[in-house]
Design a protein around this nucleic acid. Structure first.
Length: 252
DNA sequence: AACTGTTGCAACCGCAACTAT
DNA sequence: TATAGTTGCGGTTGCAACAGT
């Protein structure tokens, strides 16, 4: 059945439901996602007869109904990684969440706000206003409004050092290779569009792959060597290293 | 038991970027 | 090329559950 055709099943101008989802709504959404796939959420919402917006359906699916989601408590290990990644990337929740299979950005964001921010704040007595703001997770966005926090301070605090999260993120240092080209991981890390995040992730995953391969060939290979290995990424012509024919949105 | 304040989390909103026509 | 539609993200809100009085 064509989308246009089945979309007619919901009446025009009908008031949309908001708030908590009912069990039958969940069941209906699941069956229609299985039928139509995880795309065209507006059409899917109409076709299903659910009095919900496509946006609401998408959110419900991604945050609650999607298979392989972990709903359990966040472990100490996960908590430590969240702290480190937040220190590095700021409030890039979707980016952080991609490091936790089965966890959603919403879940991690909520966990940060309700548990970690409070925990950090408890250890912040006697620190500067800037450090307190940073602990609250708001400091990155204040720079947009020309806050009192100097940009350079902000940048160095978010990605200036290399903590133990490198184990997770990959050992290749972008900072080493970026000087000549004027391009660094930070250029990606501080952006927010899905496209840029996707690119950023691809690069970090690519770095991991290269490092793994190098480790396989030579256990003691240096970061500098790895950086030069990555030079292709800073070359003006990206077509040498990246086949752009596929969709960036294809996460599979 | 009844009321009030706090907490945790699901869901919504606005916006930016991408895609389709 | 223009524009409408769709998707993804981060910030915020609303409300149920719980704790304290």
């Amino acid at each position: 059945m064509a989308y246009q055709e089945i979309a007619m099943q919901r009446e025009e101008g009908e008031e949309l439901r908001k708030g908590t989802w009912l069990e039958e709504e969940d069941e209906r959404l699941i069956s229609f996602v299985q039928l139509l796939g995880e795309r065209r959420w507006d059409s899917l919402a109409k076709a299903s007869g659910l009095k919900r917006s496509g946006k609401s359906c998408r959110l419900r699916w991604l945050n609650y109904l999607r298979p392989n989601l972990k709903h359990g408590q966040i472990s100490i290990e996960e908590e430590n990684i969240i702290l480190e990644l937040h220190e590095r990337w700021g409030n890039k929740w979707s980016k952080i969440a991609r490091r936790f299979p089965g966890r959603t950005d919403n879940e991690i964001k909520n966990y940060w706000r309700t548990h970690l921010r409070k925990k950090l704040a408890q250890g912040q007595e006697g620190k500067s206003q800037y450090e307190l703001e940073k602990a609250k997770g708001d400091f990155l966005f204040e720079t947009k409004n020309e806050s009192s926090v100097p940009k350079s301070t902000c940048e160095s605090s978010t990605h200036g050092d290399h903590g133990s999260v490198e184990d997770l993120w990959g050992s290749c240092s972008w900072d080493n290779s970026s000087e000549a080209s004027g391009m660094s991981s930070a250029d990606f890390a501080l952006t927010s569009s899905p496209y840029e995040n996707r690119l950023s992730d691809w690069i970090s995953e690519y770095s991991n792959d290269i490092q793994s391969e190098m480790n396989y060939q030579n256990d003691s290979i240096s970061i500098e060597s790895a950086s030069s290995y990555l030079e292709c990424w800073t070359a003006p012509d990206y077509s040498y290293t990246w086949d752009c024919s596929g969709s960036l949105w294809d996460m599979t």
